[in-house]
Each structure stands twice: as C-alpha cells, then as structure tokens.
Design a protein around this nucleic acid. Structure first.
Length: 434
RNA sequence: GACCCCAUCGUCUAGCCUGGUCUAGGACAAGAGCUUUUCAAGCUCUCGACACGGGUUCAAAUCCCGUUGGGGUCACCA
C-alpha cells in the first residue's frame, strides 16, 4: 500500500510551492490507490501558529485534497525522545552540554558514500564525510526537523517521499538516520522548484505566494491546479487543459520534469479564463455574492438571484479572474456608472444630444423591449441619420457603462433595462431642448 | 567557497530513456489581421529555442566528457 505525506510547517500560509508539493503527492497517492497523509510539522513552538494550521487546512480543502490521516508533531515529542535515547544507548549519538547546563543529543555522522535512486532524477551520490554531526534533540527538548521527519515517516509507514528539490541535501542525512534507527528506506522523489519571475525563489516580492491569496483574487481551484500541474508535468499530447481527475489516470512520477519552472501569471490567467467559461454560473454567483455584498452592490437578503445569474453568464467567458466581475460589471449595480476619464475623452467629447434623444425615443416606441428589437431600431436610426453604427455605439456604451469594453451593447441595454438606459443617455443630452 | 541539482522559443513544455520520421511540435505572451459593436472574448497569420566546446557515430536536440550559466543546501528553522 502506497502511503505518501504532505508535511507543511505552520509558520506561514500554504504557499504556491507547498500547494504544488501537495498536488503531486495527491496525484501519486490517487494514481496508486494509496493513502494521503497530512502531517503538521509544528515542532518550532516559537514560530508555529494555530491560525496558520487553520489556513493550511482550509487551503488544502479548497484545492480539493482530503487527507486520510492527520498528525501533529507537537503531540509526538515522546516518540522522538525515545528514538534519540535508542541511538544514545547504541553509541551512535552523544550528549552535548551547553554552558547553561542544557543537554542536546547529537548524531555522530559516519563518513561514507550514500546513494539515492531518486524517482525523478535517478542516481544521486553524496559523501557523508562532508556532513557534520547532526543535532537530534535540541537543548530545549524539541526534535530537529531531519530527525522528527525520519522518525515520523518511518512510524507512519510512508512509502514514498515526494517533496521539493530543496530537500535533496537533507536526503543523505535522513538516510543515515533511517539506517541508524534500523528502519527500511522509503523511495524518494524530488520535485523541481518553482521560481519567481526574477529567477530566484518565489517570494512575496515576485507575486502572491499564498494559495488563499489566489482564491481571494478570483482564481478557481481547478484552474490553479491545472496550471501547477503543467509547471512540471505534461500529459504528452499537447493538451493544456487537464483536470486533476484526468491527471490521476495519466500520471507517472517518472514523467515529472527535472527543470525548475517560472511561475507566470499570464498563463494562469488564460487557464483560469478557460475554466471560467465552462463554470457553473450558480457556483460563480455563490462565490460572488459575499464580494458584491462587501461592495454594497447587493443586499444578501434582498436581491434578484436570477438577475445576478444572467449577469454572470454575460461576463464569465471574458473574465481572466472571477473578481474582475466586480469592476467590469459595476455599472449594473451602481445608480450611476463610473465614467472612465479616458473613455469619456475618446467617445463623449462631441455633442450627441440629438442622436441620444432620438434613440431614447425609439426605445419608448419599441413593440417589446427585447435584444433583437433594440438592435433593429438602433440600426434603423443610424441608417436614417446616415452615420456609421460604431459612431454611436461607442458613445452609448461609455454613457451606459463608463467603459470602452464590455459585453455586446444591445445585451447591455436589455439587461440594464429601458428606464436606466434612457436615464443614463439623457444625462448627456443638453437640456436646452424641452 | 564546498557539495548537490538543472540546462529546447521571453515563459510553460513535446521530443531525449529506445540516435535518423526535427529545415524541432503545442500552449501562454508579444506583433499583425479578421470579427462592418468594443475587447480583456473568438478566428487567422507572424515572430521566436536545441547554452557553448569537444568527442562517439554514416547520422546527435537526443549518448559521453568538459566549460559556462542558473538554482538549491550547507542552523539547536522547517
């Protein structure tokens, strides 16, 4: 039975790199019909925080990863102590006393060649004579990372350790400990690192790093996962859109890339848009409701859900991020559209009083207020006036929405409603004519 | 600095293991055009890469060595 684990430290949020590690562990466990274990590495009492634990669990759930077992290292200190004592008795470790009289347990690192057959990278060889003796239990009684990690992975019967590249140099230290403790070795697979656009490590400077930030920005979990997947793995048939479910079927850890990849928002936006296009409007509306409420665009207890759904459908195919809906569709919720200065400058500088007034009248004379009729009467009007349709379409759009871009104009008019559309147009009509 | 990892378009990658079908394919981005209603949507086209040097071979993006470049790790942090 394959058992993998994801072992974040609650000293910060679940970040992109962690999410990616969780993803590949998840993929591997599902493709092998194995177990996915979550272990919170909270041995550092100073830096570990409960709110980070909650944030990490929340993000993992948002991504859709369910764990079969959950452990906290802070609850297992006696296990580490026990194994450290074992090494002490066997003469493989020694005690070091600090000036303050505190005792630490140190592992005596033997010098030899260590070979690892990494599932992704193949053979890697180390010389442990270059590694200095390792602290097992710190003088405050807490275990070090490498020690707790080995004890736990062994006791939790982890069969495959899939983690970031940055752990390659921990591997020989851990292998030595497995052997000293008399444990069998798991298999190792080191994932390439994800880099920021600056070529260095992904950091806050180079963009948002927390998974939850991507949720807040309006990325769909399936889109983020798809993007992360493509960062170091490909289905092999030139496909860009692959769901986690499909990936589980196609996944083979040997096909994971060795090269580190740069995190590029542009492609993420594109993928997100692809998923947004096909997303269920009901679900998108549910995501949007609290955000619209925060902007005071709607009132949770008193709003027209059917209308919101219509607007979501109108915009979803063109949004890179769901949250862009808030800005792009604001004119449907505001009493007055916010006119962008550049848009006004471009299309509303001339006097279109006559044209606007005639169009407002036509809207009143419609047999029925429907998209085809609105467009039909508009086409008639420009034909009669002998002007190009676009000479009037753009100014009307700006008057109604405040923007130069958006859904088709006649749909906008239809969903805005006759009265609101007329009112907004009349604002631009010089009041000299009664 | 030492040790380790990596190296195909600006970015993500296919191809590499099992050399020839590669004048290197796809996607994102960018540029151009179309869509006589915009575009951040759609369609079409264009630009654009095997880091370098040696081998091995009839033949190398593919195998070997070196160089260069990039990254990671060297904590009583995880």
């Amino acid at each position: 039975m394959v058992r993998v684990r994801f072992a974040p430290s609650p000293t910060g949020n679940l970040h992109i790199g962690g999410g990616r590690t969780a993803l590949f562990n998840w993929l591997f466990s599902q493709s092998q019909k194995g177990k996915f274990i979550l272990r919170i590495e909270d041995t550092d009492r100073e830096r570990s925080r409960k709110e980070f634990v909650e944030e990490i669990l929340y993000s993992l759930k948002w991504l859709g990863f369910n764990w079969d077992e959950l452990y906290y290292q802070s609850e297992r200190f006696e296990r580490y102590r026990l194994h450290a004592d074992k090494l002490l008795k066997a003469g493989l470790a020694y005690i070091e006393r600090s000036e303050a009289g505190k005792e630490a347990i140190i592992y005596k690192v033997p010098g030899r060649k260590i070979r690892v057959n990494d599932l992704i990278r193949g053979q890697i060889e180390f010389d442990s004579s270059l590694i200095k003796d390792q602290v097992l239990i710190k003088s405050d009684g807490t275990p070090t990372y490498n020690f707790a990690c080995v004890v736990d992975d062994a006791e939790m019967n982890i069969t495959h350790i899939i983690r970031g590249d940055d752990h390659i140099s921990n591997t020989p230290k851990q292998i030595l400990l497995y052997e000293a403790l008399g444990f069998g070795l798991p298999q190792f697979a080191h994932l390439p690192l994800i880099m920021g656009v600056d070529g260095g490590r992904l950091s806050k400077r180079t963009g948002a790093t927390a998974i939850s930030d991507y949720h807040k920005m309006g990325y769909l979990p399936e889109a983020l996962l798809n993007y992360l997947l493509l960062l170091s793995w490909a289905p092999g048939d030139n496909r860009e859109l692959v769901s986690v479910e499909e990936a589980v079927k196609l996944f083979d850890i040997k096909n994971v890339n060795k090269t580190s990849a740069t995190f590029d928002l542009k492609k993420l936006d594109w993928i997100n848009n692809q998923y947004l296009k096909g997303a269920d409007p009901e679900k998108l509306a549910d995501e949007l409701i609290p955000l619209l409420e925060a902007k005071q665009y709607i009132n949770r207890d008193n709003f027209d859900r059917g209308y919101l759904l219509v607007l979501v459908k109108l915009f979803q195919a063109r949004l890179p991020r769901l949250n862009d809906f808030l800005d792009w569709a604001d004119f449907f919720f505001l009493d007055e559209p916010v006119i962008e200065p550049a848009a006004k400058e471009k299309y509303l500088t001339g006097d279109l009083s006559k044209e606007f007034r005639l169009f407002v009248q036509r809207l009143d004379n419609l047999d029925s207020f429907e998209i085809v009729n609105i467009e039909g009467s508009f086409r008639e009007l420009v034909a009669e006036l002998g002007i190009e349709a676009k000479k009037l379409i753009h100014p009307i759009r700006v008057a109604l929405t405040g923007k130069t871009i958006g859904p088709g104009l006649f749909e906008v008019i239809y969903y805005l409603g006759k009265e609101r559309s007329q009112k907004r147009l009349l604002k631009w009509v010089k009041s000299t004519v009664a």
